[in-house]
Design a protein around this nucleic acid. Structure first.
Lengths: 142, 142
DNA sequence: TTATTTATTGAAAATCATTTTCAATAGTAT
DNA sequence: ATACTATTGAAAATGATTTTCAATAAATAA
């Protein structure tokens, strides 16, 4: 069994929740999906393989997965919440192409360090951060 | 007349729009307001001084002010769009206290530079960016 | 195993910020 | 002043997300 299922099960046990087929299937499909899926998109994927799983359940399950750290939530400014894998993936920032809508994940340790410095200068204790750079990607820029 | 009104008027003339009392009053109150107001908050402020100006008009006017560069729009992740002064204010990032909700505006040129470097490395042409650091502020951290 | 308890499900309705509609109103140009 | 049409504001629509609630199904106890 993949580590992710163990994490979910442990979280469920700790909280006195219940292991259900739906939660298992939704996690399964989420894990098999490339990053940055909206609830709507995920629901369609789920429905394709498992009839009878409702949209509400998908939504609620994603919230649950967020709570137990298996997925991260991001809103790139279009009012739609997108979920991305979190377990086993380190923190990253996003380059967002405003033409084709593609997201590129990037990482620059120097920026991370400077952010901590910045926070410290303001006696601010950071818990998380979000850096989004909007623009035109390589493909669209030609 | 403040420069901001000139900018709005010029934008209005260029686009073949019309100068209205409502637009003038809403800009007036927006300018007199500290940064990061939601449409709802601004509407209440407007209503206090000028009866008969509707919520829709406030909302539409803020969109107009965004278009002509007088205000910037930000969503800190709670699904509410907030408007902040843009003319005469340089770009800045935000430290957001998740306890008291206060926003601190910060600026670190080195971070800006590194972001451009990062974009360049991915052949990405940045148009704007958004950096938000969530955490606990000085006051709340005691 | 069976009974009991109660978390979960899913369809539908509710919520809430934002956007659109549309008839009445009011700038602007002629 | 007249004509033209952008703007207004109230109400309705939209669309993502959340809640409701009766039916169902996990988990635990008997």
């Amino acid at each position: 069994m993949r580590k992710e299922f163990q994490i979910l099960d442990e979280f469920i046990r700790e909280k006195g929740l219940r292991h259900t087929l739906q939660r298992e299937k939704i996690l399964d499909i989420f894990l098999a999906t490339e990053r940055h899926v909206s609830a709507e998109e995920l629901y369609k994927l789920v429905k394709k393989r498992f009839h009878g799983i409702g949209y509400t359940t998908v939504y609620r399950t994603m919230k649950l997965l967020s709570e137990c750290g298996l997925c991260g939530e991001t809103d790139f400014g279009d009012g739609i919440l997108r979920f991305e894998h979190k377990y086993g993936h380190e923190h990253h920032d996003h380059l967002i192409c405003t033409k084709c809508g593609r997201f590129i994940e990037v990482m620059k340790p120097e920026i991370e360090k400077l952010q901590d410095t910045l926070a410290k200068q303001h006696s601010f204790t950071p818990t998380k951060h979000k850096l989004e750079i909007f623009g035109i990607c390589r493909k669209c820029g030609k």
